[in-house]
């Protein structure tokens, strides 16, 4: 579903991604771990189409299409979803209005009818229930005044409503208490499907106990320096990153 080949990207004059290779197949869950500043969010941003990052080398294929050729909204309509590490506040726009505009843009692209108010409400209420979020979220402005945990939950809620094919979760677990973590993880697990792939960026093995990955990659200094099974996450938790850094050096 997603093939990343020798991806290099920079911000201004600073090279951040320095040759990333990754193959993620439909039905799989992969985790990316790595120390602060190693380029995890940069990779996520490049995949979502953030234009502050300039791709200088390499290619990304998504379902056979050149992903880097598409605008952010086209990627979203094709099924790419990024749950932000730092979700953005949008005062003055309610979650309801925002999400309905988003869903209808995506449905239109898929050749589906726009959902009317009643059908939309039914759909979102189902998803709210799954994630244990109160209905009043819909009337509140997008992320405005939300706690860190509420913002993260809202990202997963949006993901559930928009029904993407490629889900990229950037540190969705940070800021969540243990109950919220379990709820979010259950929500993500309920989205695991044969035709969907999930890329989980995290610092903590804890999340991976709930969302069990097929593969774990370590991103260090702009490259994937080690890949392994779910036991790699445990090893990192126990030993930290120093041994990886030494190996990479």
């Amino acid at each position: 579903m997603l093939t990343i080949q020798n991806l290099h990207a920079r911000v201004e004059d600073k090279e951040i991604l320095r040759g990333v290779n990754l193959q993620l197949n439909a039905g799989e869950v992969h985790a990316i771990m790595g120390p602060n500043g190693s380029g995890k969010s940069t990779l996520a941003g490049v995949l979502a189409g953030r234009n502050a990052f300039e791709v200088t080398e390499g290619q990304v294929f998504y379902n056979g299409k050149d992903l880097l050729d598409l605008d952010p909204e086209e990627r979203a309509r094709e099924g790419v979803f990024l749950a932000f590490q730092y979700p953005v506040e949008i005062p003055g726009v309610t979650n309801m209005y925002f999400l309905r505009a988003a869903l209808n843009a995506i449905r239109k692209h898929r050749g589906q009818d726009e959902l009317d108010g009643a059908k939309f409400l039914k759909l979102v209420k189902e998803k709210l229930n799954v994630l244990h979020i109160a209905d009043d979220l819909l009337k509140r402005p997008v992320n405005e005044g939300f706690s860190g945990g509420e913002k993260k939950r809202n990202e997963i809620f949006q993901m559930a409503v928009l029904d993407p094919r490629l889900c990229i979760l950037d540190e969705t677990d940070s800021g969540l208490d243990i109950d919220a973590l379990r709820i979010v993880a259950d929500g993500v697990n309920s989205l695991r499907r044969k035709d969907r792939a999930i890329l989980v960026i995290t610092h903590y093995q804890r999340l991976l106990e709930y969302i069990v990955p097929d593969k774990v990659h370590v991103l260090y200094d702009g490259r994937i320096v080690k890949s392994g099974g779910k036991e790699l996450a445990l090893e990192l938790e126990a030993k930290g990153y120093d041994w990886i850094k030494e190996q990479a050096a």
């Binding site: 979502a48 605008d71 952010p72 909204e73 309509r77 949008i90 505009a101 988003a102 869903l103 843009a105």
Partner: peptide
């Protein structure tokens, strides 16, 4: 940042 956020949800730039 707000424009980008909306676009990653499928809303085009003009909208």
């Amino acid at each position: 940042e707000q424009i980008f956020y909306l676009r990653t949800r499928g809303i085009d730039e003009k909208a």
